[in-house]
Computed example of a mutant assay.
Amino acid sequence: MTRDPAWYSDIRELVAEYAAAGRIDARTGAALRDRLLRAERHGVAGRDAAASAQLLQVVAVATKDIRGDRAARDAVLRPTLALIAIVALVD
């Protein structure tokens, strides 16, 4: 299940949409997309612990850097935290 790249790309697309709309600044959006891409690579390869580590970094960056728009922050956190929980169940 965690090897499906859609889990990761869906969150990346969400980040891209919010960044394009100006709800997440460009630097933060790039950092989030980079970590999500790394998480996807690890997850698809079956390296669940490494995928989780990258996803936890997504949570940290979103929590720290998406300040002015709680709805945007929460929109990123919800699926990321859900994916972390799924990875933990599979691991």
Rank of each mutant, 00 (worst) to 15 (best):
M1P: 11
T2R: 13
T2M: 15
R3P: 09
D4Q: 10
D4K: 13
D4S: 13
P5A: 05
P5C: 07
A6P: 02
Y8M: 15
Y8D: 15
S9V: 10
D10H: 12
D10L: 08
I11A: 15
I11D: 15
R12L: 14
R12K: 10
R12W: 05
E13R: 11
E17F: 02
E17C: 01
Y18V: 00
Y18Q: 01
Y18N: 01
A19E: 12
G22S: 03
R23L: 05
R23K: 05
I24F: 00
D25F: 09
A26K: 08
R27S: 10
R27F: 07
R27L: 11
T28M: 02
T28G: 02
T28D: 11
G29V: 07
A31R: 09
L32D: 04
L32Y: 12
R33W: 03
R33Y: 03
D34R: 03
R35H: 10
R35N: 15
L36Q: 10
L37D: 01
R38E: 06
R38Q: 05
A39L: 13
A39V: 08
A39Y: 06
A39T: 12
E40D: 06
E40H: 04
R41A: 01
G43H: 09
G43K: 09
G43Q: 10
G43D: 08
V44K: 12
A45P: 05
A45R: 08
R47A: 05
R47F: 04
A49L: 14
A49R: 14
A49K: 13
A50G: 10
A51C: 14
A51L: 13
S52Q: 14
S52T: 12
S52C: 14
S52N: 08
A53N: 15
Q54D: 15
L55Y: 13
L55E: 13
L56T: 02
V58C: 11
V58P: 00
A62N: 05
T63C: 06
T63V: 05
D65G: 12
I66L: 04
R67Y: 08
R67A: 13
G68I: 03
D69Q: 03
R70T: 06
R73S: 04
A75T: 00
L77F: 09
P79W: 05
P79T: 10
P79M: 09
L81M: 12
L81K: 14
A82F: 01
A82W: 11
A82H: 09
L83I: 02
L83E: 14
I84L: 15
I84M: 12
A85T: 10
I86T: 03
I86Q: 05
A88V: 04
A88I: 00
L89A: 08
L89V: 02
L89W: 13
V90K: 07
V90Q: 05
D91M: 07
D91I: 05
